[in-house]
Write a protein that binds this DNA or RNA. Sequence first.
DNA 1: GTTGAGGTTGCGTATGTTGCAACGGCGGTT
DNA 2: AACCGCCGTTGCAACATACGCAACCTCAAC
Lengths: 252, 252
Amino acid sequence: MSQSLDRALTLLNSIARDAKTLDDLAAEIGVHKSTVLRLLRTLEQHHFVRREGARYYRLGSALFDLANQALDSLDVRRSAQPALAALNARTGHTVHLASYEDGEVVYIDKYEGRHSVRMYSRIGKRAPLHCTAVGKVLVAAMPPARREEIARSIEYPVLTPNTITTPAAYLAELDRVAQQGYAVDNAEHEDFIHCIAAPVRGAGGEVLAAASMSVPKVLLDYDGLLALVPELRAATKEASVHSGWTENGKGH
Amino acid sequence: MSQSLDRALTLLNSIARDAKTLDDLAAEIGVHKSTVLRLLRTLEQHHFVRREGARYYRLGSALFDLANQALDSLDVRRSAQPALAALNARTGHTVHLASYEDGEVVYIDKYEGRHSVRMYSRIGKRAPLHCTAVGKVLVAAMPPARREEIARSIEYPVLTPNTITTPAAYLAELDRVAQQGYAVDNAEHEDFIHCIAAPVRGAGGEVLAAASMSVPKVLLDYDGLLALVPELRAATKEASVHSGWTENGKGH
DNA sequence: GTTGAGGTTGCGTATGTTGCAACGGCGGTT
DNA sequence: AACCGCCGTTGCAACATACGCAACCTCAAC
């Protein structure tokens, strides 16, 4: 809708991958380098990019600043923090906090696991709804009509042999998740990792976010993973309480 | 240099403070709301902002994503992490990692202290060079000519009764810092807090960043703060080693 | 049912942005 | 030491783009 802005934002994404020169960037988005230069200058003024030496451009500190302001304004994140940090410290596994954002899952917090085999993820990263435990939890919390709408509208890329590939199967899975109060990703997203997730609720009982634990299969088999569910649920319950949830309000 | 981009970035800053409506934003930057709408739409497509309900705009997840990619690409941050986290855990005080960026200090990492009186800061936040311990360390590491250039070019806003207010005084302070290998901010930035900082060095002995501890004065008097210097220096030394520094290379 | 406060759209115009081509600085090469 | 080529930078003229306007639409309050 706004050409120059659109191009500038594309530039940021490109620079994010790694530092680039002017010509690299010009070639990449297919515009003249003087155009890129002017955009970069504006971005630089606002500290969205900075120059490294004379040639290379890197992302600047305004990004950090804005991002952290935004994260700070996410109340769930703050209120869930103690419970999730404790869960991470106790189990040593990677813990994520995620929320729903138009057809995808967004990770809004992450506590790195202690084990060397780590999952590739990052705060701010987006992931599909159909093959993640957090995705299932978040969608399962929606009213049935909305669930169906989403189940029909999303894609089902096959990422591993276990990935769910049809709306029908996904809806059935969502029912199961809604009933049991937690979700499992049995290596449906990445081959070597399986996860469990459970909801974090707010004052009205509404689901604010989903917390998950991700464990490499070499470390724990499926039964071992399921054995962690009570611990995860204890943590999400604590996080929910900190977020204003009360057992009697509208619980479960 | 690019009007629409400039406006869009200003919008982001404005939204960061807190969620705004279209009219708010239009009034704030003094343009027609349809213009703002178009900019916001482009920002929204790129997930830089998202809508909350029908009215309000908030920062979006692309910011988190970019910021964390950028932070991950800062090698000092990663290599200093274990040492600083341990320092934070051991002492319970707030630890910052900061680097120099055109005339200011930028916080690139932060480990929150355990005590209730906390310092207001945030990763990505910028701070002045003349009244922060990290600023002194970073500038003191530069060659004398550059020090003078910076000392002459920066402003000296008076933030507390202890703030350094002249280039001459600042240069003298820098000499002291360069000699003793650490810097102190004796409540020169915020009235109730004092800090110590020391450099983190890379393979060539060059200063990559500065690490600091910030302590509320009610918790520790000036002498108590100085007593922490050895512990801080041990941590920055460890961080330096992880960053490729070797004692014999070009050390100290 | 009416009013009002936002958000949204289509359109013509002028402004801002673009691409070009020439310049200049820097580093590597012979 | 001089040359060459690579990149970043600048001024300018042409054009497309983003702009402001005004009318329209939606939703909520009274």
